[in-house]
Design a protein around this nucleic acid. Sequence first.
DNA 1: CTGAAAGCGCTTACAG
DNA 2: CTGAAAGCGCTTACAG
Lengths: 344, 344
Amino acid sequence: MEGVRGEEAGPPEVSTISKLTIRRIAELAGVAKSTVSKVLNNQPDVGPETRKRILELVESLDYVPDASARAVATGRTGTLGIIIPRKPGPVIQGQYWSSVVGEVAMFAARRNHDLLILTPRSEGEVVSAYRTVLRTRKVDGLIIGSEVLHEHDVDPLLQAGIPFVLIGENPWVPHYAVTTDNRGGARAMTSLLIERGYRRIGILTGATDFPYVRERIEGWKEALAASGLPEGPIASERGTEEEICAGVESLLKAGADAVFVAAGAEAMITTLARMRELGKSDGVGLGVFDDDPVLDLITPSVPAVVQPLANLADSAVSLLLQLIEGTTPEPMVVTLPTSLKLRS
Amino acid sequence: MEGVRGEEAGPPEVSTISKLTIRRIAELAGVAKSTVSKVLNNQPDVGPETRKRILELVESLDYVPDASARAVATGRTGTLGIIIPRKPGPVIQGQYWSSVVGEVAMFAARRNHDLLILTPRSEGEVVSAYRTVLRTRKVDGLIIGSEVLHEHDVDPLLQAGIPFVLIGENPWVPHYAVTTDNRGGARAMTSLLIERGYRRIGILTGATDFPYVRERIEGWKEALAASGLPEGPIASERGTEEEICAGVESLLKAGADAVFVAAGAEAMITTLARMRELGKSDGVGLGVFDDDPVLDLITPSVPAVVQPLANLADSAVSLLLQLIEGTTPEPMVVTLPTSLKLRS
DNA sequence: CTGAAAGCGCTTACAG
DNA sequence: CTGAAAGCGCTTACAG
């Protein structure tokens, strides 16, 4: 209340602990700071004796250099940032992004980097997320959910010289990206449904301005065409429950005998609920893009297109790390194969 | 391909951009760095004219001070860390922790802090997560899922002088914590089931060495006792599918006419699946601790105890920030009320 | 109200 | 093989 701390003469306890610093290590080892630094960064030109002595000291005192100081000296922070979308659509609460974030954190950790989570202040407002963090140099690079990135967001990023990679390809933003074979996955699922005897296969998609959504639609069309079937009905929604329900209804009304929910597991759940309400839950074929353990509960079983999320994360991290190192990896876009989970 | 970049004499473009720094601002404004610094940190003692000039410059050039440099000068990084458990049990992929992380990130952002995700390398191995990050001073404070913290983990934390708060109370670790009323929630759910006519209410819990698990069991017992009912059967599991199934079976075998799944929504899903397989899905009363939108799909409906996750996150962040500021907040443990979601 | 100087904890040429 | 010095970009007493 009265500024008790500020009043005192010396610092309270610092004297006791006397923060462990490279200087202290140097003193104890009887060498110069620079020598300690060399050992810490395993530079070669240090005498084996000296090196050993320093290493032991570091070990026993459990010394770790201050990240900020190192960052200001080297220009590297050792942390990566990730920007994920906000509602509507997939958010961190959702199956997809929470997995991605978890995996990215893991792979980053394996390569000695930490992960900073950046959430846009509001929907579509990516800039707010990276603006300061980027100028502030808190991260060495960024992993960005491609659907949040618009054309006009890219320039500031590029100009700031911050390396970044997209998760999901974005045709408006020709840049390093890792993505999965959306088209192929959709094609495979559609083919499966055809194989199972369905003839009028509708598709429920997310917002069609998202690139991956378009790709899935393409895949669906391709499979239908390949089998000589006419194009089925199509419905899009932007993530709200109402829109999903409306979409499902329209598909059924259009005479679909199967529905391919290409908009993720959450949309599938809502779809199922709606179909039950409509009393249409039997006989209609189903398939979903993105799996969820919950679907194990559903009868009849729902096959799913599954994305290799761990690989995705791994690739994103190593791509980004390469960019940070200054190498120019190729190819620019890594496309990972999807697989089908059949659930017999 | 040929190291084109590295070959060149000077730095490629730095010369053009000439990194924006406080020194540059000072030069342009014709003042000293210290003056700029004062304005940036809104210190009062700067002439209005000067302040205005500097502010305009900062604004138009979009200058933001380097976070690392500031950190090394002030000792504050402006980032918070969060440590969440690994499997078995709730992980970031799970409904609970992904929500918590998301909310914490939001509330931290509102208070101008970023969130660093720290994942233990392996199960139970918290130390690996905070050890370096903590010694490295990458964060000003830590938010820790209490179930991951063991008694012997605390000392190093305390000694390092890193402020931290627990999410979920931990009797072995008397420390600042925010938690929800697990006991009350469990009591309420159990009472509801009693009210609905069930007389032999079993409980399926997580690992009983977790404090919150015990509390939930207490609440369940209290409700039963209050109604003069005998204690029902109890089964525990550690998060694996097999254990959950075994637990459910044992409860049913013990004659439970209702099952209170106190181990989270994911366990509820598995429970439902198992009960269907056993052909026991009808007639058995159900309740769950922690909700999930998926449960909207289930008939008959499953009532849920819901925790105020946003409040939880908010409280955790402000508690931590207080600790970082150096104030000693009280009470030490904040307990938030839970509510019942009935699903009529 | 303003600025010169020292310092935060590290790294990196450079000289010896 | 080792160390003294300068520098990274900021802030903080302190003097004027």
